[in-house]
Design a protein around this nucleic acid. Sequence first.
RNA 1: GCCACCCUAGCUCAAUUGGCAGAGCGACGCUUUCGUAAAGCGUAGGUUAAGGGUUCAAGUCCCUUGGGUGGCUCCA
Length: 633
Amino acid sequence: MGGTARRHRPNMGDGVFLFANLEVTMSEKNGNVPYVESELYRIRHSAAHVMAEAVLSFFPEAKLAIGPPIEDGFYYDFDLGKDENGKSITFSPEDLENIEGKLKQLLKQNAKFEQSSMSVADAKEFFASEPYKLELIDELAAGKVDENGNPISEPVSQVGIYQHRDFVDLCRGPHVGFTKQVKANAVKILRSSGAYWRGDENRQQLQRIYGTAWHNRVELDDYLKRLEEAKKRDHRKLGKELDLFSTSPEVGGGLILWHPKGGLVRHLAEEFCKNEHLANGYDMVYSPHIGRSTLWKTSGHLTWYKDDMYSAIEIDEDEYFLKPMNCPFHIMIYKDKMHSYRDLPLRLAEWGTVYRYERSGVMHGLMRVRGFTQDDAHLFCRKDQMPEEIDRALNFCLHILRSFGMDKFHAYLSTRDEAKSAGDAERWGDATEALRAALDRAELDYDIDEGGAAFYGPKIDLKMIDALGREWQLSTIQFDFNLPERFEMTYIGQDGEAHQPYMIHRALLGSMERFMGVLIEHYAGAFPLWLAPVQVEMIPIADRHIPYAEEVAEALRAAGLRVEVDGGNERMNKKIRNAQLQKVPYMLVVGDKEVESGVVAVRTRDNEDRGNMSVADFKAHALKLLESKSLIL
RNA sequence: GCCACCCUAGCUCAAUUGGCAGAGCGACGCUUUCGUAAAGCGUAGGUUAAGGGUUCAAGUCCCUUGGGUGGCUCCA
């Protein structure tokens, strides 16, 4: 991901369910003005300043870095200096409590925010003891970036200053008029963390405090409640509760163990996707998990990607490497014979398991792991086929995602970085246009990540949002102008000459692990019927009803439904509760009445009592929902 | 990898200033055979993540390692 896409994304209209309330709030209060012009933005920006004032009251030696509003809140970065042992001073949980108390107290004292400006020279003198502010001033004066790190168009001669009480900060604003306009009971300090100055891990690590601020207490409570709700749909929590997957220190971090239920959901997802691939002109291939070093030398991975690869495996005095990608293998399949222009396009698909080194601090449930299975494919085609291939790939991708009920995502088009790109400009231009045209034809909104492409080709990425609002890339469609060159791939054209094919990498679900993580959170564990590991729970009221429950279960299983019979020694209420907690779509209660009239009492996990149905009617209903991959029961 | 915090029974959590390791759920056994979200009684279950240290005494304090959480950085 390139720098330009890492901008703040305060666009609340992204439609993730969790923030639905917020959208309403925002538009009501602000008439849909952009976030940076909203009152909430000023409130948060002001809260950041007053928080810094509070920090200085406890840590007078702290140096100020930056403190901008962000989505749902604000932060401020500080350098607290070193203690007598030369260790960086950090905030303790008690410090944060004290700072929050002081912040609230300072807000109530109602100081006025006064705006002014200074010449660059005056500002450098005024902030002489604030090294981070001095660096910011220098960069503003040099016309490089503003105080938030965003590029600016021309050098500035005057810098903005905001002051309340004795606290003076280099700042463009805007702020509220008086500190009291930030309600003390609508502000909360959330956490602290380390953060590198200028986002550069080679520079000083600062101490960041995150806080949140809202118009009033009710909004703050709503926000905190939303955070609580979000935690309930965290795939790591649900993965344990629903017995879907686990990891084990004995196996190693970032390596997933799929349990029977999670494995079944994954299998169902894969089965559907594989069949769709076969129906859409793809060929399924398989390749090994390791390959000789010569392969990775030719591909360039040992030059460019070595840091992400695991160390060599020695076999017969030769070095082999675990694959971080599938592409070299698919290229070898292509190269196993000569190709005529008539053979193209060729679409080689594989559920390929790859292993990549991830630094220990970045692993996250199923979302970021060290071993994962991509729904990978490589398209090889002629120039004249290329635009249609892109179109097909994108539409196929949207079809697959929508089949899983996913229709809210961010699309990005990443374009060429002139400084580092392989392949000629004309190919880049054609390819980028094909991607853009496909996005337009699919009527997708997308952001352009200027210069964000890999050195080997432009791409489209689709990112989904998890329960906590974090974005995760699933789909990618990317050109590769590098590998066909390195592997000297050719086909014989109509003119009898050898030509280089276009090569497109694409993954739709991305990786099965990450996709499952997103899927679990998307449905909060309540999978649609076609994906539910257990679709029907038979609930006999007393032991004498078990034979009938088994009989019904067999009839439903014969139709392909996944049915369990709860023959345990518990009361019906408890069995229902258990099935509810496991988010089983249908509970079929059978007692004397049902046995007598040969029906089942249908209850859904949505707490709906559907009354009695004949087994045949229930079966027909369920099969119809399965056929259409219905999201409702 | 960096910063902070966390790790007690299968799960969720208690345990006063350092002073006898506990509860609920789950599992198992017995009783109960029940009508739409938790029946009753009983039993088993622990080297308090691992290792080291301080102390008369460590779940609690200190150090090391491992794992996790939230950020930062990274994620062609």
